[in-house]
Amino acid sequence: MKVRFSNINHHFGSTRVLDRIDLDVKEGEFVCILGPSGCGKSTLLNIVGGFVKPSEGEVRIDDEPVTGPDPRRIFVFQERGVFPWLDVEQNISFGLFKLPEGEQRRRIDHYVQMVGLKGFEHAYPRELSGGMKQRLEVARALAVNPDVLYLDEPFGALDSITRLQMRRELLRIWEAERKTILFVTHDIEESVQLADRVVVMSQRPARIQKIVPIDIPHPRDLSDPRYIALRDSIFGEIGLAHQV
């Protein structure tokens, strides 16, 4: 048992945002939280990240209540989260200040390599493309070797080709490192391509409408009838006919 949300209720002033959220996430599991824009799924992620205190209920991780942000669990924002005043290496080593010099060096080199930023070690974020900045942020998060990653629509601002590549990269990294991942998105295809389970949220106040296990092994074939069936069932769940 890794992450457990129990009976989370949340409101901003008089607006109810989250309605009785109960969810268990297993160690090493990849869970997508899927919902329409503005439904409160980001708030849920901010609660588990320790940035927002829920109005009611609590989140426990390994049976320890979450009381605030913790370096064992890193939040990845959209690409704007990289520090613009630091270059690529300095960004990656941002969270490594407690480690000895040699270990820092080793991790920087390792993750620069892993996210494909070799040759850009001393570039500043303004010189990088959106996809590179996003990979940099993932590298910065992975470098501190966290148990859990929280990703808040991380690929939302990227073009569709880069987005596909980034998903593949993320899966490759996840298979190599087996972190527990909570991934917030409003993109149905994205959730079915990535997750072990898709948690479908309703309109505000957000409830868990359905949890859909995606029992297709990676790498997933996007023309596989099983993939299409699962995808369409979620489209149906949200109330959209899959037609344009």
Partner: peptide, 13 residues
């Protein structure tokens, strides 16, 4: 200051 940057800072402890 972008809230994201402050949040990231606290997140890394």
């Amino acid at each position: 200051i972008e809230t994201i940057h402050l949040s990231a800072g606290t997140n890394f402890g």
